[in-house]
Design a protein around this nucleic acid. Structure first.
Length: 351
DNA sequence: AAATCCGACAACCGCATCGGA
DNA sequence: TTCCGATGCGGTTGTCGGATT
């Protein structure tokens, strides 16, 4: 399909006079930020005549704007039901989830976020999500990044949601509203949303062995919020590092992580993921601990959502090794997060 | 205090699609 | 069936304000 390039070309086969008139008209058109007067004009016109017929609106309202510009201004800014302010954790979760499913279908995603515009979602993706991907030097649409999002970012958002829910005692609506994908209420056990955060063995009787993660209802009932910080909330240097001659990443000088203290505080001192070398040939100690902790946090959240057994293949990404209906213990869950966990280690508190 | 950088967001542009003539 | 205007969508750019140097 042939496309006209710019307003000057809009005349097509028009004669010189018509062309001149169009160029004159185009020259009069305003661009750039909208003024208060323009906003008022647009709103009052729509109040009288309703939305739509944007070109007609542009001609008749007295606005020296294109119909497109008027439409955009209305839909993205002036429309009364536009929601302002930062995206909530729930909304971010929906975006991550739906983007993994549909890709850059911003308007489609926006349909699932009442009051949010496709433009806003697109901007969020570009400024926040893609920034993370850039920092990790991976493509935001890559399977590795998607796995990282699922295994690390989403659990963190769940953490936030549950914390918010706990502080306000208001039930987060996402599970009910959303009803699909990773957070499908049909896939999740009927447990309270406030149980989706951090679960320690002290409170939950957490046992990473396969036999301990079979009984969904029992496990779900046993799962209680533990007074244990999420991995994301941990103050690394204060609590889990001690001076040494070796750097975190094996370099000279600095601190060294106390892995036992860290995993112990996470309630995972009984967790044996095996030697790091077995799955991370180039792993450093930091890689290993990040790996373990990311996995543990994700695994515990996953436990909560699945009644104590790892049976949700979507949780660790489409590229993961899980199969619906399979039974997985913590170690297996850890293995399926293979690519994501290294990235998660690099993420730190950047999310 | 001034200059520079950077993140967030509004707005524009080109292209695709739809529907009516 | 074709043409063409209107509308919608996604990518990109411009602008502004706060943070940093």
């Amino acid at each position: 399909m042939s496309r006209r390039k710019g307003a000057a070309a809009a005349g097509g086969g028009a004669g010189p006079m018509a062309m001149a008139a169009m160029e004159e008209e185009a020259a009069e058109l305003r661009r750039g930020p909208w003024t208060l007067e323009e906003d008022n004009l647009l709103m009052s016109y729509i109040a009288c005549h309703g939305e739509g017929r944007w070109n007609l609106l542009a001609r008749c309202s007295g606005l020296k704007r294109t119909g497109k510009s008027c439409r955009l201004r209305w839909l993205n800014y002036l429309k009364p039901d536009i929601k302002r302010g930062n995206l909530t954790a729930e909304e971010q979760l929906v975006i991550l989830e739906l983007h993994a499913k549909w890709g850059n279908r911003w308007s489609r995603i926006a349909q699932h976020l009442p009051g949010r515009t496709d433009n806003e979602i697109k901007n969020y993706w570009r400024t926040r999500v893609q920034k993370q991907a850039r920092q990790l030097k991976v493509d935001a649409n890559s399977a590795v990044f998607r796995d990282a999002v699922r295994c690390y970012w989403m659990p963190r958002l769940l953490d936030k949601m549950s914390m918010a829910a706990a502080s306000t005692a208001a039930p987060p609506p996402l599970m009910e509203q959303h009803g699909q994908g990773v957070l499908s209420s049909s896939q999740s056990p009927p447990i309270g949303s406030d149980q989706l955060c951090c679960y320690g063995p002290a409170a939950a009787g957490f046992d990473p062995s396969p036999s301990a993660s079979t009984s969904g209802s029992t496990a779900a009932a046993a799962l209680q919020p533990a007074p244990v910080p999420c991995f994301s909330e941990l103050n690394w240097e204060d609590q889990y590092c001690y001076p040494s001659g070796g750097d975190l990443d094996g370099g000279a000088g600095g601190m060294e992580l106390d892995s036992a203290a860290l995993l112990g505080s996470l309630g995972l001192d009984g967790l044996d993921l095996g030697p790091a070398e077995s799955y991370l040939p180039d792993a450093t100690l930091l890689d290993y601990l990040n790996y373990s902790s990311c996995t543990a946090n994700a695994a515990m959240n996953m436990m909560a959502m699945n009644g104590g057994s790892y049976n949700n293949s979507s949780y660790c990404g489409g590229g993961g090794a899980m199969v619906d209906g399979d039974h997985h213990d913590t170690t297996t869950a850890a293995t399926t997060c293979h690519a994501a966990r290294k990235l998660a280690g690099e993420w730190g508190g950047g999310i």
